[in-house]
Structures are given as C-alpha cells and as structure tokens.
C-alpha cells in the first residue's frame, strides 16, 4: 500500500519539476529575448506616431517667406509644457522640412517664447494656459498643434486627435489663414476640416 502510493507521487513530483523547469527556461528565454527585442525597438507610442504625422503634415504647410531669415535657417518645433512628448519629437531633429533643418525645443512657463517657433505642439494636460498662448500667437506665422478637437475650435490651426487607438487630424482653416500659413488642398482631402466657433 505504501509502495503503491509513493511511486505515482514521485513520478508526479518529477513531472511537476520538469514542467516547472521548462517553464522557468521558457520564461527566462522570453525575458532575455524580450529584453533584446525591446531595447533597440521603441514601441509604437502615441507621440511617436504624432511626431511622424506632424512631420508629414508640415510638408503640406507653407510658411510666409519672411518667416525664415534664409533658406538654411532652422525650423523650430516647440513642445509646450511637458517633457513626456519631447523624445518622440526630438527624433525629427536630423530631418529637414524643405531646406530647413528641424530644431526641437521645450517651452514651459513663458508663452511669449512661442513666437520664436514655427510649430508649437500643445500636449494635453500641459498645464499651459492654451487660450493665453493662442491669443499671443494670433496672426503670427506659427502652426499651432493640439491634441483635441476643442483645441482647434478655440483657434488652434491643427489637432492630432487619437480616436479608437488611431490618430486622425483636424484642420482649422480660418486659424491657419490668420497665421498666414498656406495649407495645401492635397492635405485637406485627408483631414477633418473644421468650422471655427470663436467665442
């Protein structure tokens, strides 16, 4: 009786040990592999897509000639208020828009600093006073970019809105016209064009 009962237990234990060993092996390989795979490849984050999208969209935008001092002067892309989106946008720094190399800057407490930018990206919950910033940029050749449709309604030129895990974009034509920016009609086919509702 004793012998009968011990044999299956040992077998069970051995099988259990084997299973746990293989599970351990598998998980450690997964872990190493995961680490290998994860470290060089950035995940497709929302801001990475938004940065890539903004770069594409900006190709369809024309700034007035007087904006740049010469053909080689840099195009300043400002991220307002928050550091989190900064790395995604900084990956654009090696690129050029037309002949202008892109430079990325963080603008925090001082909304007047935005006048040195050609593109101003306002992340959500940046803590910045968006209305104040937009009022100070009124009529200036700055492409203002936000993350909500409401941003475009309040007078921003462009909104990169995430809906159902996809990023779409909305253009406020009236606002971009006031900023003397010309947006190519090619782009407008892909965008939601917004009628402004100014207070």
């Amino acid at each position: 009786m004793d012998a009968l009962s011990t044999i299956p237990t040992t077998r069970l234990r051995a099988r259990w040990m084997r299973r746990s060993l293989s599970a351990l092996l598998a998980s450690s390989i997964l872990w190493i592999g995961g680490g290998l795979a994860a470290s060089p490849v950035p995940p497709v984050s929302e801001y990475a897509v938004k940065a890539a999208l903004l770069f594409k969209v900006a190709k369809f935008v024309e700034w007035p000639a007087a904006t740049f001092s010469n053909d080689r002067s840099s195009l300043v892309l400002c991220v307002v208020g928050r550091e989190a989106p900064l790395p995604s946008f900084q990956s654009l720094e090696s690129r050029q828009l037309g002949t202008h190399p892109i430079v990325v800057r963080l603008v925090t407490g001082d909304m007047l600093d935005l006048r040195q930018c050609q593109i101003a990206f306002f992340p959500q919950s940046s803590g910045a006073d968006v209305d104040y910033a937009l009022s100070k940029l009124e009529g200036m050749p700055v492409l203002t970019v936000g993350e909500t449709t409401d941003f475009a309604r309040r007078g921003g030129s462009l909104a990169l809105v995430t809906r159902d895990q996809r990023v779409g974009f909305t253009v406020n034509l009236a606002a971009s016209k006031r900023s003397s920016l010309t947006i190519s009609s090619q782009l407008l086919h892909l965008a939601t064009v917004l009628e402004e509702r100014k207070p």
């Binding site: 795979a37 497709v44 929302e46 801001y47 897509v49 999208l53 969209v57 989190a84």
Partner: peptide, 30 residues
C-alpha cells in the same frame, strides 16, 4: 517569433509610412 517581431518593428520605421498609413497605425495610449 521574437526576432521576427523585432525585425518587423525595426524594418518599418514610422516615417516610411504614408500619411494615410500613419492614420491607421494602432497606437499605444500614453
């Protein structure tokens, strides 16, 4: 599986995608 998934992500950088393709990329919500 791991290697291929990594290489897919590496081989298709976002800037190679067209505007329309970009608007269809599934994003990880921040």
């Amino acid at each position: 599986l791991l290697v291929t998934s990594a290489s897919i992500a590496q081989d298709t950088p976002l800037d190679a995608l067209s505007l329309e393709q970009l608007t269809n990329v599934h994003v990880e919500h921040t």
